[in-house]
Design a protein around this nucleic acid. Structure first.
Length: 600
RNA sequence: CGGGCCGUAGCGCAGUCUGGUAGCGCGCUUGACUGGGGGUCAAGAGGUCGCGGGUUCAAGUCCCGCCGGCCCGACCA
């Protein structure tokens, strides 16, 4: 049996106003609802949208301090520590060693990796009294790599280090309660290896550990290929949980299991069948046509899939044209990932007018050999297409993409959509909204080189350690559990992460028999190592039941005069409402068994 | 950072257009009855109307400025 993570419970005030009845502190010091701080709310908070946000606030687990910063109440903190304990167990299982690093860092170390300037406004920065520049850590690659410099020999590798630490990220838009915040706890781990095979092993170990973690937390997470973004490195996998409260889209194939972030996902399209087209493009008037849709609807126009969409992008100092099929959407991250640039953004109307001589709506790449033109793969080999003539109110038809356009690079740029063919097996896949609950990266040597984390290999040569980094945001995962485990009445905590596993609801606390039976059952459960809370409040039964449902304890035992008269108490399982009458004498054993059975 | 909405009692809201005693529901306090899904009765407590300035005899209400929050978008290790 797992040792209980609960601290020695103590009543907030032995003489508090809510205190009723007598109890001897030496008998186990019950956690009494009447003296606990559990600020449940009858109404949804007005400013919450996401289900987890509403429920965590309403059930009294969290309170907001300011946008993107939340306090956890004792109940919320208990749940978070259970999440933490599960993650810690799984990290220890793969041989990781726990650290605790500072969350405040000197500028110098971030300058060494180049990120002091590259991360920009998302990093909180401050000065100390000596005017030295400091940062609040948003991640710890630099700091762990810095400590890794103490290793000198390949014999000391591999190393796998981790910590739980507060991260600070000055998000432009914190939202959805705990899902997107500016201050949060992260489990971040870092692997240091001599060679690629070692990194692969550490990465795979994390992959497996993460699978186990999310399973134990109580939801399904899909592993997807992802863009590594600012982290650098060559491979990264995100763990995504399906949820409407999420903000990342992934493509997922139910047939073969292929999954990828839409920033990366590819798909199979049915081959387009084109007519012979014209021997040379022909201009034709399209008065008032400003969009793909306009042209599709216009008499003598062309369906979207026969059009070429021309986008103008500013890549650092250079302006480029990006071509897609008319009915396709650009996945901007794909562009960012495939062109080497610091900054990429759509060109503004003035720049477009200056460069192409027309407004958006009539743009095209035909004959523009002077511009750098990138085209999406879906346009390769297409003939008889329609595109803008770079003259307001005119388009060209009969365009043969490869013949008439000087395409400098063919890239995969389009955003996939539900119903398209899975690139792996061809079955039609779907695109879902998801919450990113974990992310693992193969970093390579970027940070070890920057920090000078080298070891001598067998031949005496100096080589940089190969790093990986692996993160899980705890509060976001807590919210994900709620997103995945709730109903119209409230949260349905899985036993593994419930703030308390059992609530003993005493229906009529002023009745001596009820009171004593409640206390006795509470003591038995406590002694058996169950996390249990005693609802001894002088409230109507309905209030207690609704609160218990709202907070979502996995099991509720109801003790009331009616049942007691027959020597019976009622056990209700929260997630499916299953009810069982238990003989008072054996109730504790049955409940303990039920709870232990669900701990994983 | 752009667009929209909002800030009045612990929570949810009305009152703002059209300036004139700051309200409702829930919650809270005390007492009584009650007690297996938010009960009833009675008596209470609780508000710098986000902040600052201005107009006015008079500002929750009108004007100016600021702060804070939510949503959409941009952004996101």
């Amino acid at each position: 049996m797992r040792p209980s993570e609960s601290p020695p419970p103590r009543s907030m005030s032995p003489h508090g106003p809510g205190h009723r009845g007598s109890h001897c502190p030496c008998k186990g010091d019950p956690v009494r609802w009447s003296s606990a701080f559990i600020p449940t709310l009858r109404d949804d908070p007005a400013d919450a949208e996401a289900v987890s946000h509403k429920l965590l606030v309403r059930a009294g687990l969290i309170r907001q301090l300011m946008a993107g910063h939340y306090s956890l109440t004792p109940l919320g903190f208990r749940a978070l520590r259970k999440v933490e304990a599960i993650i810690r167990e799984e990290m220890d299982k793969i041989g990781a060693q726990e650290f605790r690093l500072p969350c405040m860092h000197p500028k110098e170390i971030w300058e060494k990796s180049g990120r002091w300037s590259s991360v920009g406004e998302e990093m909180f920065r401050l000065k100390d009294r000596k005017q030295a520049d400091l940062a609040l850590g948003m991640t710890h690659e630099e700091i762990f790599a810095y400590h890794a410099t103490e290793m000198r020999s390949y014999k000391q590798l591999p190393q796998l280090w981790y910590q739980f630490q507060t991260k600070f990220r000055d998000e432009a838009r914190p939202k959805s309660g705990l899902l997107r915040v500016r201050e949060f706890t992260m489990k971040d781990s870092y692997s240091f290896d001599l060679d690629q095979a070692g990194l692969d092993r550490a990465f795979d170990n994390h992959f497996d550990a993460y699978r186990r973690i999310f399973k134990r937390l109580g939801f399904e997470a899909v592993a997807v290929e992802a863009s590594s973004g600012l982290m650098g490195g060559n491979q990264s996998i995100e763990f995504m949980m399906k949820s409407d409260a999420g903000e990342d889209w992934i493509a997922h194939c139910g047939q073969c299991g292929y999954a990828a972030n839409v920033e990366k996902a590819q798909s199979q399209l049915p081959a387009a069948i084109d007519g012979a087209g014209l021997s040379t493009p022909e201009e034709f008037p399209t008065p008032g046509v400003r969009t793909i849709d306009d042209l599709a609807k216009m008499k003598g126009g062309a369906p979207a899939e026969r059009q070429i969409k021309t986008l103008v992008y500013q890549v650092d100092e250079k302006t480029i044209l990006v071509l897609l099929r008319g009915d396709h959407q650009l996945a901007e991250q794909k562009l960012v990932d495939q062109v080497e640039a610091q900054k990429i953004h759509p060109a503004d109307a003035e720049e477009i007018q200056r460069l192409l001589g027309a407004r958006p709506g009539s743009l095209g790449a035909v004959g523009r050999r002077d511009l750098y033109v990138i085209a999406d793969e879906a346009l390769r080999g297409r003939r008889d297409m329609v595109t803008g003539a770079n003259k307001d109110g005119f388009h060209l038809r009969g365009v043969d993409v490869e013949r008439d356009i000087d395409v400098k690079a063919w890239l995969d740029l389009r955003e996939v959509r539900s119903g398209e063919g899975c690139p792996a097996c061809g079955a039609s896949f779907s695109v879902h909204k998801t919450i990113e609950v974990g992310h693992i990266f193969k970093l390579g040597t970027k940070y070890s080189v920057a920090m000078g984390a080298y070891v001598q290999d067998e031949k005496g040569g100096s080589v940089p350690m190969i790093m990986g980094s692996y993160g899980i945001g705890l509060e976001r995962n807590l919210a994900a559990i709620v997103e995945a485990n709730h109903d119209e009445k409230g949260i349905c905590w899985p036993v593994n992460t419930a703030p308390y596993e059992v609530v003993v609801s005493v229906v009529k606390p002023n009745d001596v028999a009820c009171h004593e039976a409640g206390e006795a059952l509470y003591e038995k459960l406590k002694a058996a190592g169950i996390d249990v809370i005693l609802d001894d409040r002088d409230e109507r039964p309905g209030v207690k039941f609704n609160d218990a449902d709202l907070v979502g304890f996995p099991y509720r035992v109801t003790i009331g005069p009616k049942g007691l008269a027959e020597g019976i108490v009622e056990l209700v399982r929260r997630h499916d409402g299953e009810k069982r009458d238990l003989k008072l004498a054996h109730a504790a054993e049955t409940i303990v068994e039920a709870v232990l059975d669900e701990r994983r």
